[in-house]
Amino acid sequence: MSTTTADHTEDHAHAHGHGLGEAVTHDAAKFGMWLFLGTEILLFGGLFAAYALFRAKYPDLFVEYHKNLDLEKGVFNTFVLLFSSFTMALAVLFAQRKKQLYTTIFLAITFVCGAIFAIVKYFEYAHKFEDHIYPSKNIFYALYYMTTGLHMIHVFIGMIIILALLGMNMKGKFVKGRYTPVEVGGLYWHLVDLIWIYLFPLMYLIG
């Protein structure tokens, strides 16, 4: 193939990456995270498909047993998670504007929201276990534990990411350099919210 070489001296100016422009690195990281979110959707997809199948097969079972779920806690957690998405979006906004303090505050609030969600969920599970309701009880509970449990794992991963972002922010990384990690980590946290937006009506709001 005919090629010529061009002198890309600017390329060597960047210490990090492999000499790519910052915008390329930023785009690449963001795009990569979007691809990964697609993977996550299909990971949950298996559970959604199982849900669709079993709910269509046993509608009465679903109506019957969903009543045992704690609707108030579910609604509360939904609000908490939506709010955390809002604070995460703000954290990204302030990181972009290089406001270190505000970024810290909103990342911290997001983290706390995640923790509240986890605690409420813990009490829900604990209550169910006290009543000897385990995943093996029936298909509905199997689905309930599998979906919310897998979601819970994602909440924890998201919280770990936020902790890492907090650490980076405290060191001033986003003031001196790119805010890409906050944006990418934020995308992940929003996905956790997205999944819950569907799980909540599917589990708690069966007519």
Binding site: G21, V75, F86, L93
Partner: peptide, 29 residues
Amino acid sequence: SIENRDHIEEHHTNIWSYVFVLLALFTLT
């Protein structure tokens, strides 16, 4: 492809639009 852009395009969203979005989400819930 590589263009050596150093400028990251920023989205000009303001805080109030996020507040509005949050309220919409709460209402829908």
